[in-house]
Simulated scan of single mutants.
Amino acid sequence: MGFSANETGSSARATRAERFAADREAVRRVIGFGISDEEFDQAPDVLGDIWGIVTDKARGFPARSASPGS
């Protein structure tokens, strides 16, 4: 039995949302105080920046410089 592209996409989005929620809860436990989802959304995308650096290095691009607000 196959899945339609829409069903597969919905499933992937639901899985991603569950992982996001679990990651945020883990951060809340580690830092020891509550932080709202809105505060998470306003925070810099540190993990995204790290993945960008790793991708650049793997492709042989010059190193990125750390810039505030990115």
Rank of each mutant, 00 (worst) to 15 (best):
L47T: 13
W51E: 12
G34Q: 09
A22E: 15
D37Q: 07
S65H: 07
A17P: 06
F20D: 05
A58I: 07
G2P: 15
A66V: 15
R59N: 13
R28Y: 02
K57G: 10
I50E: 04
A12W: 00
Q42C: 12
E39D: 05
A43Y: 10
F61Q: 14
R19H: 10
S10G: 12
S11K: 11
P44V: 02
A17K: 14
D23H: 04
E25W: 07
S10N: 12
G32S: 02
P68C: 01
G9D: 09
G52V: 09
V46G: 01
S11P: 01
R13K: 04
D45P: 01
S65G: 09
R29I: 09
A17L: 15
M1Q: 09
I31N: 00
D49N: 08
G2D: 11
V30L: 15
S65Y: 04
E25I: 06
D49M: 11
W51I: 10
W51S: 07
G60Q: 13
D49R: 14
G69V: 03
A66R: 14
G52F: 03
E18K: 11
D45W: 03
D23K: 05
S67H: 08
A21R: 15
V46H: 00
R16W: 12
R64Y: 04
R16P: 06
P44L: 07
S36Q: 02
A12P: 00
D45R: 04
W51M: 09
A43E: 14
R16S: 15
R29A: 12
G52N: 10
A66S: 09
V46M: 01
E38D: 11
F40Q: 02
D41Y: 02
R28P: 01
V46C: 00
G9Y: 04
S67T: 14
S65D: 12
A58N: 08
S4G: 14
D23W: 04
G52H: 06
A12K: 09
P68Y: 04
G60A: 12
F40M: 13
I53K: 01
V46Y: 01
A43R: 15
I53N: 03
A43K: 08
N6K: 15
R16F: 13
P44I: 02
S11R: 13
L47P: 01
R13N: 03
G60S: 08
S36L: 08
I35F: 06
A14S: 11
S10I: 04
A21M: 09
D23Y: 05
E25R: 12
A26P: 12
G34I: 05
A12N: 09
S4N: 07
G52Y: 03
R24Q: 11
D23E: 08
A14E: 11
